[in-house]
Design a binder for these strands. Structure first.
Lengths: 329, 329
DNA sequence: ATGAAAGCGCTAACAT
DNA sequence: ATGTTAGCGCTTTCAT
C-alpha cells in the first residue's frame, strides 16, 4: 500500500495525495476529505524512506551515548527527547560503549543523511575530525566536549565546581584530600582535576600526587582507590569523587574498614543521581542540571538544523553542591 | 558526491561501482582496484537511504526501551548489540518512557521499513495489535511479554523464581512475608505475584492481602512500602521485592527505623544489578542472565528477519537466587 | 485545483 | 566483465 495505490483508489494523481499528506493548501476541501478517508480506511502510512530520499531529511536525530550504565544520562535524554518532539523530531539513541569503531559507524548515519543531526554525550574523535564533521552536519556536544574543537556545546563549569568543593573542604580544616576520577572522559576529568589542583594552589597547600587516583567509574574503582589510600602514610580526611558510583564504591570500602563516613572522613560524589539520597549514609554530590542540559543541547542542534552555518555557541549551565550525610550534614 | 559522480570519474557505469561497493565478484580485479582507490580518494559513502529504498532493507534494528532509568537494561542491550553486529545490523534504541504515543511513533519506523526489525523490552500494546504487527514485521519481546499474544519471546520463569524465593523464606520459619512490586509491567509483575501466592498456598500459609504492595519502581516506592508495613499489626520478617531499586528504598527506610536488615528482617531484590554488592548491607537478589537474554532476543529476531513466517519461539532462560547480607549471609 | 513527469541514490535484471 | 535501464515511494516544478 503506497501513495500510488491511494491515488488509484481515489482516482487522483499521486501529486494530489502527496499534497494532502503534506497539508498543502492547494487542494479542494472536498478532495482532501475524500483522500483522507481513503487513507484512514486503508491505514496508509507514507513511506519515510522514499520521502527522505526525496527531501534529504529524516526528521530524526541521533544521540551518541557512551554507556547505558549510568543513571546520569536518563534525564539528559529526556530533555533532548522532549525538546526534539516539540520540533517534530524523533530521537534515536546509539550506545557506543566507548568503542570508536561503533562511534564512526553511527556517525555514518549522520553523514548519509539517515538522521538530520547528532548530539554527542561523548565521543573519542579528535578535534580536526569533529570540526570537519560539524561544519558539514548538525552536530553538538553535551556534557563532554572535545578540547580544541570549535563546536556548539553545553556543559557545566566542571573546573569551578571541583575548585569550590575542594576549597570548602580546605576551609573546613581538611589537610589531606583525595581526588578519585576516571581516566577516559578527557574534558570533564581534566577540568575537575584542574579545579582540584587550583584549590590547593590557592590555599598554598601541598598536594601529594598520590592523592589523585584515576581509573574508571565502576563501583570497584572507587573501592580500589580507597584500598590504595589506606596504605598511604597519611589517610585523607576527605575524598572528592568524579561520579556517584565512585563515591559509592569508596564509601562501601570505607565502611568495611570501620571508617565513619561523614565523621572520620568526608566523601562527595558527582552528578547527584537518585541513589545518593537512598544510600547509607546519604551521599553529598555535585548536581548538574541534567534535564536542562539535554534541552539546551537540542536547542543548539536545532539552530544547526535550520542553518548549518549559524555560529557555534558554547553554553555553560550552573552546577549545585548538595551536602548530605557523607559530608557531615 | 554520489555513485554517479564516482562512475563518471572512473569512466564506468554506476552498475559497476555498485558491484564494487557490494563485493559482487563479477568485476575485473583491475577495475575494482581503480574504483576503490577513487572511492577512497573522495571519501565516498553510498547513500543508505537510496539503498534502503531500493533493497527495502535498512540493516538496522530498533530496541524499544521503557526507561533508561534502570541499570538492568544495560547488559541486555549489550547482548543484543553484540549479536546484531555479528549479523551486520546497527542497533538503535528508542526510549518510550511508558508512553504509548511514543511507542507507536517508534513502531512506525518498523512499519515504514526504516528499521528491519524490533526488539521490545516492554510495550503497552494489546495482544491483537501485537499479533498483527508481528505477523507482518520482525518483532520479538524480551523480558516482558504480552500475555495472550503469540510472538517470539525470551524471558525467565518469573513465577517460579519468586515461588522458590518465598518458599525458602517460609521453610526458614518466616511467618509474615511481604511482596513489593510495581504495577505496570503486567507480565513479570503478575507472574511474580503469582509465585508469591503459590508459595503460601503450597505451605498452607495464610496470606494477608495487605502484605502485597504495588506502586512503582522508584526508591521512594520501596521506602513508602516499608512505612506502610510498619503500621501493620504484624511487621513482616521478610520482604520480596520485584526490583533492586525497591529493595534499596525498603532497606534504606528500615535502617532509618533501626531495623537490622539481614537479622531482624530479610530483604531480597530482583535483577542483581551491580549496586547490590556495594550497598550496605549487600543486597540479595534474583539474577536474570541479562546478556544472554539480549543475545537470544536478537537470535529470535534474526530468524524472523530471514523468514517472517518462521514459527514463533518462546525461550525461557534460567534465573539464579543470590544470597548476600540482606538475607543473613 | 489537479496532473504529468522528473529525479532523489541506489540495486538488480537483463543485455551486450 | 561491463553497461543499460527500470524502479523502489515520495515530493515538487511546471503545465494545464
Amino acid at each position: 500500500m503506497n501513495i500510488k495505490d491511494i491515488a488509484e483508489i481515489c482516482g487522483l494523481s499521486v501529486a494530489t495525495i502527496s499534497r494532502v499528506i503534506n497539508n498543502d493548501p492547494r487542494v479542494a476541501d472536498s478532495t482532501r476529505k475524500k483522500v483522507l478517508s481513503v487513507i484512514e480506511k486503508h491505514n496508509f502510512m507514507p513511506n519515510i524512506t522514499g520521502r527522505s530520499l526525496r527531501t534529504q531529511k529524516s526528521n530524526k536525530i541521533l544521540v551518541l551515548l557512551p554507556t547505558m550504565d549510568n543513571q546520569f544520562y536518563t534525564s539528559i535524554i529526556e530533555g533532548i527527547q522532549d525538546k526534539a518532539e516539540e520540533k517534530n523530531y524523533a530521537t534515536l539513541v546509539a550506545v557506543t560503549n566507548l568503542d570508536q569503531t561503533k562511534e564512526l559507524k553511527y556517525l555514518d548515519m549522520l553523514k548519509m543523511n539517515h538522521v538530520d543531526g547528532c548530539i554527542s554525550l561523548f565521543n573519542t574523535l579528535d578535534p580536526e575530525k569533529i570540526n570537519q564533521l560539524s561544519s558539514k552536519f548538525p552536530f553538538v556536544q553535551c556534557c563532554e566536549k572535545t578540547i580544541g574543537a570549535d563546536v556548539s556545546n553545553v556543559v557545566i563549569d566542571n573546573e569551578t565546581a571541583v575548585f569550590e568543593t575542594t576549597s570548602e573542604f580546605i576551609k573546613n580544616g581538611h589537610k589531606t584530600i583525595a581526588f578519585i576520577s576516571g581516566d577516559y572522559y578527557k574534558y570533564s576529568e581534566r577540568s575537575r582535576e584542574a579545579g582540584f589542583r587550583r584549590a590547593h594552589q590557592q590555599a598554598d597547600m601541598f598536594l601529594d600526587e598520590k592523592l589523585i587516583i584515576k581509573h574508571f567509574y565502576k563501583y570497584t574503582d572507587g573501592a580500589d582507590a580507597v584500598k590504595y589510600l589506606m596504605h598511604l602514610e597519611k589517610m585523607p580526611t576527605a575524598i572528592v569523587c568524579a561520579s556517584d558510583s565512585l563515591a559509592i564504591g569508596a564509601i562501601s570500602e570505607l565502611k568495611k574498614n570501620d571508617y565513619k563516613v561523614g565523621k572520620d572522613i568526608f566523601v562527595i560524589g558527582f552528578d547527584n543521581t537518585s541513589i545518593t539520597e537512598f544510600y547509607n549514609p546519604s551521599i553529598s554530590s555535585i548536581a548538574q542540571p541534567r534535564y536542562e542540559l539535554g534541552q539546551e543541547a537540542f536547542n543548539l542542534l536545532h539552530q544547526k538544523l535550520i542553518n548549518i552555518h549559524s555560529t557555534n555557541k558554547k553554553i555553560i549551565l550552573p552546577y549545585k553542591i548538595i551536602h548530605r550525610e557523607s559530608t557531615g550534614y
